[in-house]
Nucleic acid binder design. Structure first.
Lengths: 181, 181, 181, 181
DNA sequence: CATGAATGAGAATTCATTCAT
DNA sequence: TATGAATGAATTCTCATTCAT
């Protein structure tokens, strides 16, 4: 994982992994069937770590606050762990061969939490929208979009400007989607 | 480019390019320094094609309609040309070595159009927000987020459901950001 | 052996053997010095099984019938157990290192039976030849040749044609070598 | 080929070939698609060399002499070039993937010559048999059997004894199949 | 302007074997 | 008697790149 995070997908080779962990390449095959299984495992780990981040705000009473916390957590996870995020949402490779539904469990789990939180907000009359599914998808898209641009296009502008735009975007999000108490 | 779009990034090799264009691999090096330069050029081409798509709605009078057209065009471009979109926004490779500002001209050009359109809408009192930069970034994020999820995560749900969520998300976007005439 | 017969020489690996017998690879080395010793043992087993096949017609009174039965048995064994036959007569591998005479005991035993049967036939004045050794070798060659061609080159022609040629070849063998009663 | 003949099939690796020819392994792939294509080519070469051997007695007038010459040529080729013979008749490997009929042309060509020669002998009333196909197959089997035993089992007895048995076997062959002038 | 011929570096994977426990 | 853990040495194959011509 370290290798992946520091050197990027293309540099994750069996040999480099072996070097890193100070074992022989052959040893790796005692624990993983092939390279895909390694990547697939890393992906699962990333989603699990992500899930923990996502449920951390679960205890917050106020639904809007709770949803906001989840969004904030989502964004922070993404920008603080761009490697994980890459693994989770950008990488095509390990996916192509592995379509075992179980591999997408935690991905869907996180999405479920989002939907529950959205539902709470709508039930509490705190959102301008009333369609749980659509709103959840919209919010996910929004935050995922911001995170993606920051990660992949952040270098196009100075950090301060980017931070400002992100902050304001979240402000807009709040103002446009939510109804103040 | 054809090779890239049809076979995906991983299958774009110098040899296959040479075969496709019916020249020898060595010849390619007369026109491009290395593979990165090829990818970088393809990237530029993708952005140029994208720019044309983006500018096509330029003549529309009504600012909201114009902005909406741009958004629609953006989304359609993305889902109809996932190969180009990959090249533009997901691929890390050719970026890493080349940071010549000129390579980002058309990317920024498209962004400028967006900002102009947003400004027109705000000036016409048709948006709930009033910060041009932030709103532009927010809208970009939103649409980019939807497109990204469709492209990279679309297989997680049936097509009809996905289409429905996308449609509703755009509806929400319209309702939350814009003020009806 | 099962592994050998079902998957062919190339697929007999220590690991697969270990899996099959539900022991660890290391355990195998408690019983066999190395892989060659395993193959060599299998070879011996093949020859033993072959030997049983060969003596089965031992009780037949008439010497020609007895010899014919042995030949028929030989051929049937070969085509019905091409795996064993491969192990016995085509495989070079285990031979190269091991030249212990004891490994060839049963091979020679079968050959002895052949010689005895040939001798009985000659003594009974039923063969056109009178040199026991040479005739035995000639018959062995003949039948081994047919079997080899069937096993290794059978795919070159339709099964019916092959069957026909084999049948006729044996007919010729009978007519040319033996004297009718 | 040299490598094959001297070190045997199992030792023919791309790397060793590269070493032998003093080129890099990669270069080999410029001329051959993969290892199978190399082996397949070697096989074809072996059959071509074999064919020349087979055809060499073609000018002999007397049919029995001609057929005998072919048989002698066959046997000599086999024992003098056991490597080639292995490649042609014992090796399973390269065959499995390649079943292009053209690869068996020269194999069949040699067989055709045999059949013609047998036919001449039968027509000349010089054989005890009268079925061209069956007799050809029988003769092929016989000689192939002798050759195979010599190549693969020759070490089981002293050379002189083996030579004696071979000589006598051919004598028997002559006496049992042919009719003296 | 074009390429034939070549390769160094590296990729994933497999296997027989060892040895401390 | 058994093995978990490990590996050195191979294996086939691919790719971007070079350079004399």
């Amino acid at each position: 994982m370290q290798l992946f995070l520091e050197e990027g997908y293309k540099n994750v080779t069996i040999r480099k992994i072996a070097e890193q962990i100070e074992y022989s390449p052959a040893t790796i095959y005692l624990y993983f069937k092939d390279k895909d299984e390694i990547l697939s495992t890393l992906r699962k780990m990333a989603f699990e770590k992500f899930y923990e981040f996502q449920i951390s705000g679960h205890v917050i009473e106020d639904p809007v606050e709770r949803l906001t916390a989840q969004g904030r957590g989502y964004f922070r996870f993404a920008v603080e762990n761009p490697g994980y995020y890459e693994l989770m949402f950008f990488l095509k490779e390990p996916m192509e061969k592995i379509h075992k539904p179980e591999d997408f469990v935690s991905e869907m789990d996180s999405y479920e939490i989002l939907k529950q939180n959205v539902k709470s907000c709508i039930d509490a009359g705190r959102m301008r929208t009333n369609n749980v599914d659509a709103t959840s998808f919209a919010l996910w898209s929004y935050v995922h979009g911001i995170a993606s641009l920051v990660i992949k296009r952040g270098f196009l502008m100075p950090k301060e400007q980017l931070d400002y735009l992100v902050k304001e975007s979240f402000e807009i999000l709040k103002n446009t989607f939510f109804i103040e108490k």
